[in-house]
């Protein structure tokens, strides 16, 4: 194993430009889980980003929140104004692993790890987060809801690093985060949901029910149109269009769809007039 420890973003970008197979890591929490078992990963090159001071910032400016690539869950839980402006980030951060993981794991890492069961990604996506990528060639911005191209596949090129996450600051009258895990703490989501409503419209994002975390556009349309919903069963046609859950070690497709419908119905009944 070779670990490179660049001190500046410039150095880091130079490094990965020359070593496209190298793996950038920040908290390394996803790596650690399988480390003893996946011996082949010991042979790879790793670029440890944790010393790059310029990636650590969390800033509120120009009507947006900017999370640097090294911003951790813990940083967000404890940052001022976060609870008022972005309560879903705080709620999701508290559901990630244990405190030790919250203190090391980063939002950018959660995005590039590309797990369909990610806890941080649904709330970022519900807030219309934009991924800021940098390479020696320059910067590029990709909306998070267009960042994933398939299971564990993203639009990040090997020579690019996620350097920041930009999130517009909007007033939300609905903001809900739901995580159904196998137990009440330290569990991987069987169903994850983020629901938000602002002047920009409805955002409904689901985790663990498709190859990627994704927006549920059929559900969003149903909400925008004010289609009457008289019970959880009325949501199933839209859910069928939006997600493709599977049976796996953690749950079943049938359970995931049923729970998604019930949580959506229960969460929206009080706030959405079309839900009766």
């Amino acid at each position: 194993m070779t670990v490179h420890q660049p001190g500046t973003l410039r150095e880091a970008l130079d490094l990965i430009a020359g070593k496209p197979e190298a793996v950038p890591v920040a908290g390394a929490t996803d790596l650690l889980v399988h480390w003893p078992a996946r011996v082949a990963e010991h042979d790879r090159d790793y670029v440890d980003l944790s010393r790059i001071a310029e990636l650590k910032a969390i800033a509120f400016r120009n009507g947006e929140l900017m999370l640097g690539a090294l911003a951790t869950y813990w940083d967000v839980i404890h940052a001022g104004r976060m609870k008022e402006g972005f309560p879903l980030l705080v709620a999701a951060a508290r559901q990630v692993g244990a405190v030790q993981i919250q203190a090391r794991g980063t939002w950018a890492g959660n995005i590039v790890n590309a797990s369909p069961a990610a806890d941080g990604v649904p709330v970022l996506m519900a807030y219309d987060a934009v991924v800021v990528l940098a390479s020696r060639a320059g910067q590029e911005e990709v909306p998070l809801d267009r960042f994933y191209t398939g299971y564990k596949q993203t639009r990040r090129r090997p020579d690019q690093l996620v350097v920041a996450i930009r999130i517009p600051w909007r007033a939300h009258d609905v903001a809900v985060f739901e995580k159904v895990g196998g137990r009440r703490a330290q569990a991987i989501a069987k169903v994850g949901l983020a629901i938000a409503h602002s002047a920009a419209g409805w955002r409904v994002v689901a985790a663990s029910v498709a190859p990627t975390v994704r927006r549920c556009t059929a559900i969003e349309r149903l909400l925008t149109d004010g289609t009457p919903v008289r019970g959880p069963d009325d949501l199933h046609p839209a859910i069928e269009r939006d997600v493709t859950p599977i049976d796996d070690l953690r749950s079943t497709a049938a359970y995931r769809k049923t729970v998604m419908a019930r949580l959506l119905y229960d969460d929206l009944r009080g706030v959405c007039p079309a839900f009766s």
Partner: peptide
């Protein structure tokens, strides 16, 4: 056992 890891074989935490 197909789920021979503590991420997929869940025992109760104090929260549970």
């Amino acid at each position: 056992m197909a789920n021979a890891q503590l991420t997929n074989y869940l025992i109760p935490t104090t929260e549970d």
